[in-house]
């Protein structure tokens, strides 16, 4: 069995999150070193504040300021911080009930070690040096043995409230395509297109996906197909796709390779785009080092009859 193929896959995006009124006030407040909560229907003050009552789901908008000091309600010692977490030195995760609040906020506590942390301990916000209106404007909490800090009496109204945040997220995966696709990709490196035949319906799948999708059984028998094939249908692409270095217009086609029972997709070249037609006979054109054919070009054979490929669109 050939070696298992593996490659890194990074899924990353800067998500643009609009906030709505309550979250906007809270995060803008953090930027201004003010912590806001919201009054729930039962009189509790929720921190961090949400737009809806967690019990009744009714809309709530009544913002109140709470103190930047509070009490740890539970904690967990994180001796090995992970990417993206608030501190890169060992810290405690804490739920903190701020003075004036009835619910707890999740954040990090900077403490010398687990022995310095306990439930019920008093802490205060350590503000980040640079603040933009985000939960990370609280750098972390720190131990605090003073009196509860009094709120400044802020109204929750801000002149230049933020309306959104950019939440960058990256997850790293190691992708492996599995047995059938690996075999297919290994064969492509020799410029051969190898599909797999279903033991039940005898159809040849290119690329093989490990299972015959109509019979639900494993495919295993390798069948080399092509290299020539027939354009079964196509479109002419007139807009440039991101990250694709192909001059427009070009033809994107479904190509049924000879011997395959379904079409794969490829670009047609070596012929003016407006002369490509259904039934055109084509063959792959490879470039050095590429995994897939760069494009397919006409073979010069007569066009295939519609009836020979109409099941392979």
């Amino acid at each position: 069995m050939p070696e298992v193929l593996k490659a890194p896959l990074a899924v990353e995006f800067p998500f643009t999150r609009s906030l709505g009124p309550v979250q906007s006030a809270f995060l803008t407040g953090l930027r201004e070193r003010v912590v806001l909560g919201v009054k729930a229907k039962d009189g509790r003050t929720l921190v961090p504040p949400v737009e809806y009552d967690p019990v009744t789901a009714e809309e709530i908008r009544d913002l109140v300021e709470v103190a930047p000091t509070g009490t740890v309600t539970t904690w967990a010692w994180n001796h090995e911080p992970r990417r993206g977490q608030p501190l890169d030195t060992p810290f405690a995760w804490v739920l903190v009930r701020l003075d004036g609040a009835d619910t707890a906020l999740l954040h990090a506590l900077d403490a010398p070690g687990p022995d310095a942390v306990h439930t019920g301990m008093r802490v205060r916000v350590r503000w980040a040096e640079e603040r933009s209106g985000a939960i990370t404007d609280i750098a972390c909490f720190e131990p605090y043995d003073g009196e509860p800090a009094g709120p400044t009496g802020h109204s929750g109204e801000f002149a230049d409230a933020i309306s959104g945040i950019v939440a960058f997220a990256r997850l790293d995966y190691t992708y492996s395509p599995g047995r059938a696709q690996s075999d297919y990709i290994h064969a492509l490196s020799e410029r051969r297109t190898v599909g797999e035949r279903c033991p039940s319906c005898r159809k040849v799948y290119v690329p093989p996906r490990g299972a015959c999708p109509t019979c639900g059984v494993a495919t295993a028998e390798h069948v080399e197909v092509g290299p020539r094939g027939t354009v079964t249908t196509f479109c002419i692409v007139n807009i440039k796709a991101k990250n694709l270095d192909i001059e427009v217009p070009y033809v994107y086609a479904h190509i049924a390779l000879d011997g395959a029972d379904l079409a794969l997709h490829g670009r047609i070249g070596g012929i003016p785009y407006d002369q490509v037609r259904m039934g055109l006979r084509v063959e792959p054109v490879w470039t050095e080092g590429a995994r897939y054919p760069d494009h397919y070009r006409p073979t010069g054979e007569p066009d295939a009859e519609y009836d020979t490929y109409k099941e392979l669109l």
């Binding site: 967990a76 906020l105 999740l106 939960i135 997220a169």
Partner: peptide, 25 residues
């Protein structure tokens, strides 16, 4: 990425950390 995308997910608290908060409680 399951967590509140505004207040919690940006802190990347992992699943073991959250379970540990529960265990301590």
């Amino acid at each position: 990425r399951q967590l509140d995308p505004y207040y919690v997910a940006p802190l990347w608290p992992d699943s073991v950390a959250l379970a540990a908060l529960q265990a301590q409680a």
